[in-house]
Amino acid sequence: MEDIAGMTVKNSLSRSVAINHATVRERANMITFLHLCAERGINVVSVWGNEIDKIGEGAALAALESHGITVSGYNRIGPFTPEYLDQAQFELERAARFGADHVFLFTGGLTEKDGDLGAARKHAEDEIARLLEMARRVGIKLAIEPLHPMLVGDRTVLASLSHANDLCEALGPGIGVVVDVYHVWWDERLEAEILRAGRAGRLLGFHVNDWLLPTRHLLTDRGMMGDGIIDLVSIDRMMRRSGFEGPVEVEIFSADWWARDPGEVLDIALSRCQQIFGSN
């Protein structure tokens, strides 16, 4: 697949493309990231609290306002350790100050001393219920992003859309799901669970990237859209049939792409989105 080189690619899809700062954060701090997005007509981003800390909240808010960029997702609350949960109220309130649509939940995986996956999941569910009450008071939504089952050991205990939908149904308003193709493309229930979430109005985001063969690292070897084996067109159509009207959000954790010029990475990402999602 050819890429557009040597030029800035504008975000010209009929529906918008959002960029998650994680895609270029190794070589672009938040100020640089927002400037690069604005140059390309990208007006929706997802942000990370630790990146805001690096430049200061005031500078981050001013940059967003000056470029006319809004925030979709705020990363994140978790892992669910007592120390981190003590910061949950602050994270929720800061996400609200940044006008974020939703805050991501990151449960963390199993510890060696635990070993009881059922108990770990029950603990995570109880903590999410507590966080939801806090989020409702702040006026911001919580987002469950189920991760690939390969990450249950060290990063999450929520590893399917079925589980996420069940939990959202049990907890009620104010919580929804984000579909990241990297984590759910394998699921035989994918279409049914996307439609289930769509009918309930709980689809909060759609993250795109690709699954490479071979995958050399479980976390930092995601592919650029079109470089791997995920049927992105089919999943996109599932999302549209479900009623989702939000942006296609590029989120790529990749040592290879992090090493490249961030402007070039954004140009290639926009070009690929135009090729893959532009006519669906």
Rank of each mutant, 00 (worst) to 15 (best):
S72G: 14
H217L: 07
G56P: 04
I42T: 01
M238W: 00
A197L: 05
F253D: 06
D180Q: 05
L142N: 06
I140T: 02
W258Q: 10
D114F: 07
F277P: 04
A38N: 15
I175H: 00
R240F: 09
G223R: 01
E249L: 13
E91K: 14
P82N: 07
A143H: 09
G263K: 11
T220Q: 02
S162D: 15
E127L: 03
V184A: 11
M30D: 07
A164R: 06
I175R: 04
L110Q: 10
E57M: 08
A100E: 01
V265P: 01
M7W: 14
L213T: 14
G176Q: 02
Y74G: 06
I252Q: 02
T81E: 12
S72Y: 10
G176P: 03
L61N: 12
G49R: 12
F253S: 02
V184D: 15
P149M: 00
V208N: 01
K113C: 06
C37N: 14
I128Y: 05
D116F: 12
T220R: 15
P79V: 03
H163M: 15
G109V: 04
G56E: 02
A170Q: 13
G278A: 13
S66L: 05
N20H: 07
L195M: 13
E51C: 00
M239W: 00
R130F: 11
F80G: 10
E91T: 14
L218C: 15
W211K: 13
R94D: 02
V265Y: 05
T220Y: 15
W258G: 06
D256A: 09
A28C: 11
A60C: 04
L64W: 01
I140Q: 05
N29E: 05
M134F: 14
A192S: 07
Y84S: 04
R189E: 11
S279H: 14
S14T: 06
A96H: 04
S46D: 09
G174F: 12
L266A: 10
D236E: 03
K10P: 09
M30A: 08
N75L: 14
G78S: 05
E249A: 03
I140S: 08
G198K: 02
Q87G: 02
R76N: 15
G228Q: 08
H217P: 04
